[in-house]
Design a protein around this nucleic acid. Structure first.
Length: 803
RNA sequence: GCCGCGGUGGUGAAAUUGGUAUACACGAAAGACUUAAAAUCUUUUUCCUUCGGGAGUGUGGGUUCAAGUCCCACCCGCGGCACCA
């Protein structure tokens, strides 16, 4: 009887005891680094979504090993983070304890699925041995001028006295107490990721790097949009009766003649200087309202623009016309110059604003109807003096040249991407290795003093300051420079910092001299295949690329993209087609599935459900099919007569070789579902025979083994082998057996199928057509009609075209 | 609103990239084995049909000898972003 509860623990024990999957440097083999996005060990335990990605990488890992590659396939824990801290606030149990416990549960669950990880390389971002090097990275960036401090707003809840992460702010209120969240300015650390957007000497930038990696198209586009590069011009506008000059940024310098007003962001520094006193009250009021607006309110106002005239006028440099200056919150302080020239005829936002406040429009691009809506398309320029009759593109370059000659503007580039804010006013993260001294200012902790360990004597209840402030042992130190009393930085680092470099640590996880040796990284990196959820399309992947580029620039590594090939698993939904969640009660626990069917069935089912990247619902019924398949395979060896030299029919041999070909190709292309369906077809066919051939079943066990490793190890030993099949040579298919000698020639009339006949491959066009014309179905359909054309597609079909 | 992904049987999904639509699996129905049930095996299973056929891949057009696949317009679902000048 096929009893996975017996054979699975047996083989898991065997692999562990024999260190079967230990990865060691081997100069005689090419390397292959297969990485899963490491999980956050949550208290809820493993979700069925986890093994989906892990099974795919495990299939590839086992497949690559059998193809003679030296595979690195590690696993670890992204263990710092907010949920553990919030749980600690609620229960008073230390996050270290809960995290330790969760990691144990996760490890046990993952091991029970039989993944071929090298557990000798397990890492944990919350261990001092690991975060020592996260801190080293901070100092490395700091010393190279890539980490700096500046004031930045945080979400602040006045009643909880705490800083909130964006995901804790729901509709502008605190997730927990429902009170209003306000913006508060704090001094925080930033990493200069914007320095790496464009190419940088020999290092490709975050934009060009996207061109050379094999990632899902949507992910590449998201990264590009997130960086948000735009090309345009900065233009200086003089202010009437003032010496001040306002610089605006525009992507449409070609429409300069159509600018009929100007908008400054409410926080723009020139507003107070330029506004006339009669408008001061209104401006003050408007700023108050803006400050209170949550992000959501601001976006809802999309169609209902607000703003105030400030009583001053700017001079349009192309025609010396006076245009009114306004403030409005649709102009952002942090982008471009915080000021725009408004061209209502050719910009949707300016159009809405001008309509509402009755500001005139001037059409400068012909082709639209500006009474009805802003025209943003291409066309001939009008009302634009020396630009008239140019198209948009030519007008852009002409006006930029003109501005540059007059020295009142120049071509300019802007990005949406901002520097990465890494300070968190939290406990459960890596401390920032900086000491604040009254005399010396900010002083980096000397490398020899790393790690700066997280103190245990901390009360987590939020009181308005970072929890680390409350630990005296942590806070009070002497300045490494002058020896006077000083204070430690009390903020911790964003957990994304920990996960931005972990792929390097796996190559050399026990190193206490470096984050990883250059040799180890040279041997294993970059990651050849990276698999994880699509929720990391932007942040994690962008940050990891940034770290890689920094290391490349400073000569630590010789590649500048960390993940050569990336794939995302599609989310597994509950049986009701909804996202799995406790409150809906539709959560499937992988432990229960393993108990009922075994790990191999879980693996095969998750790969058989549908395309790897597709979102798909779980079905407790459908999984039976995967179990039946494995049971059937088991019975083929267990219950049938296995004969060494049985004469295999040509059909069966051909089917095996076709299956080998299909499975080989489908693993490479991530089409695991169709690989399994072909193996099912093979098993169904073999089942019809009384006895089975040993060599045939051996090959089949080998190609099924990446999917169902426990079962196949067992079959392998039943077939008389003493060693694991993990390093057996992957079967090759015989091209001659894969190609059929006959095929079904299809006859169609005007594209509609009317008949078919089995004929020899390579049949001549003449023969094919005459065979077609003899077919009853064809005869019936062309009788009495005029045949205009006869088309023959080699080894496929004949199409007779009639009038 | 913008960007991305998708829409094929009762269900999850295949379709060699323009050439036999619905492989494989689930479910359902019938049969075999059984005292019986479960399990297992076999057969049937897109829809309509006057049994000759006919229709059919979200909708409407188009290109082609030939369209699930390519082009145009639209509808619906899911995910992400949020006034970036």
């Amino acid at each position: 009887m096929y009893d996975p509860s017996k054979i699975e623990p047996k083989w898991q024990k065997y692999w562990a005891e024999n260190n079967t999957f230990k990865a060691e440097v081997n100069p005689n083999k090419d390397k292959y680094y297969v990485l899963d996005m490491f999980p956050y060990p949550s208290g809820a335990g493993l979700h069925v979504g986890h093994p989906e990605g892990y099974t795919a990488t495990d299939i590839v890992s086992r497949f690559k090993r059998m193809n003679g590659l030296n595979v690195l396939h590690p696993m670890g824990w992204d263990a710092f983070g907010l949920p553990a801290e919030n749980y600690a606030i609620k229960t008073k149990i230390h996050p270290k304890e809960t995290t330790q416990k969760s990691m144990g549960v996760f490890r046990g669950q993952i091991q029970s699925i039989g993944f071929s990880y090298d557990w000798n390389r397990e890492i944990n971002t919350s261990s001092p041995e690991y975060y020592k090097w996260t801190q080293w990275f901070f100092l490395f960036l700091y010393k190279n001028g890539l980490a700096y401090k500046k004031l930045a707003p945080v979400n602040w809840c006045e009643s909880c006295k705490t800083v909130l992460a964006n995901e804790q702010v729901i509709d502008g209120s605190c997730e927990r107490c429902k009170n209003e969240v306000v913006q508060k300015e704090l001094s925080q650390w930033f990493f200069k990721i914007t320095d790496f957007i464009e190419d940088n000497g020999k290092t490709d930038g975050l934009l060009t790097g996207l061109k050379k990696i094999d990632w899902p198209n949507g992910t590449l586009i998201s990264q590009e949009n997130w960086i948000g590069k735009s090309t345009g011009a900065n233009v200086d506008f003089k202010v009437k009766n003032s010496k001040e000059v306002i610089q605006v940024y525009t992507t449409r310098p070609d429409t300069l003649f159509g600018a009929t007003y100007m908008v400054l962001s409410p926080e723009h520094p020139l507003v107070d200087k330029l506004a006339t006193s009669e408008y001061a009250d209104k401006i003050e009021k408007y700023r108050e309202v803006t400050k209170k607006k949550s992000d959501l309110e601001r976006t809802e106002l999309n169609k209902n623009k607000t703003g105030e005239f400030i009583g001053a006028y700017a001079i349009n440099p192309v025609n010396n016309k006076e245009i009114p200056i306004w403030i409005a919150d649709y102009v952002l302080t942090g982008y471009g110059t915080g000021a725009i020239m408004a061209v209502p005829a050719h910009d949707e936002r300016d159009w809405e604003f001008a309509k509402k406040f009755d500001i005139p429009m001037i059409e400068v691009i012909s082709g639209g109807n500006i009474e009805k809506e802003a025209y943003v398309g291409d066309g001939k320029l009008v009302n634009s003096d020396f630009l008239n009759d140019s198209n948009v593109e030519d007008a852009k370059s002409k006006i930029i040249q003109w501005l540059e000659e007059k020295k009142i503007g120049e071509g300019a580039i802007n990005y949406k991407l901002r520097d990465w804010s890494v300070s968190r006013q939290r406990y459960w993260g890596s401390p920032i290795p900086i000491i604040h001294c009254e005399d010396c200012g900010e002083v980096p902790v000397p490398e020899k003093d790393l790690p700066v360990e997280l103190p245990d004597d901390v009360d987590f209840v939020p009181t308005g300051v970072s929890p680390l402030h409350k630990s005296k042992t942590f806070q009070d130190v002497t300045c490494p420079k002058c020896g006077k009393k000083a204070k430690r930085e009390a903020d911790t680092m964003d957990t994304f910092v920990c996960s931005s470099w972990y792929m390097f640590r796996y190559t050399d996880p026990q190193n206490d001299k470096e984050f990883a040796s250059k040799e180890a990284m040279k041997n294993w990196c970059p990651v050849d295949l990276y698999v994880g959820g699509a929720e990391h399309t932007v942040m994690h992947l962008l940050y990891a690329r940034f770290f890689t580029k920094v290391l490349h620039k400073f000569g630590y590594i010789d590649f500048d993209e960390p993940f050569t090939k990336l794939r995302h698993q599609g989310m597994i939904l509950g049986e009701d087609g909804e996202k799995m969640s406790k409150s809906r009660g539709n959560v499937i626990n992988p432990d229960d599935v393993i108990k009922k069917y075994g790990a191999d069935t879980l693996r095969v089912y998750e790969m058989f459900m549908g395309p790897f990247e597709a979102v798909k619902p779980w079905s407790t019924k459908s999984i039976e099919g995967s179990f039946r398949f494995l049971q059937k395979v088991w019975k083929l060896v267990e219950e049938k007569e296995v004969i060494d030299d049985v004469v295999v029919t040509k059909d069966l041999a051909s089917l095996l070789h076709k299956t080998i070909k299909k499975v080989t190709e489908d693993i490479e292309s991530f089409n695991f579902n169709t690989a399994i369906s072909h193996m099912m077809i093979f098993a169904n066919e073999v089942q019809k025979h009384k006895s089975v051939s040993k060599p045939l079943m051996e090959k089949f066990a080998l190609i099924l083994s990446p999917f169902a490793p426990h079962l196949c190890e067992e079959l392998w030993s039943m077939l008389g082998h003493k060693e694991t099949l993990a390093y057996e040579k992957w079967p090759e298919y015989d091209e001659k057996l894969v190609v059929d000698s006959t095929f079904n020639l299809v006859f169609s009339v005007n594209g509609k199928v009317r008949g078919k006949k089995e004929v020899e491959v390579g049949i001549s066009e003449e023969d094919a057509i005459s065979t077609a014309l003899e077919d009853e179905g064809v005869k019936r359909n062309i009788e009495g009609k005029e045949v205009i054309k006869k088309i023959y597609v080699p080894n496929k079909l004949v199409n007779i075209v009639i009038k």
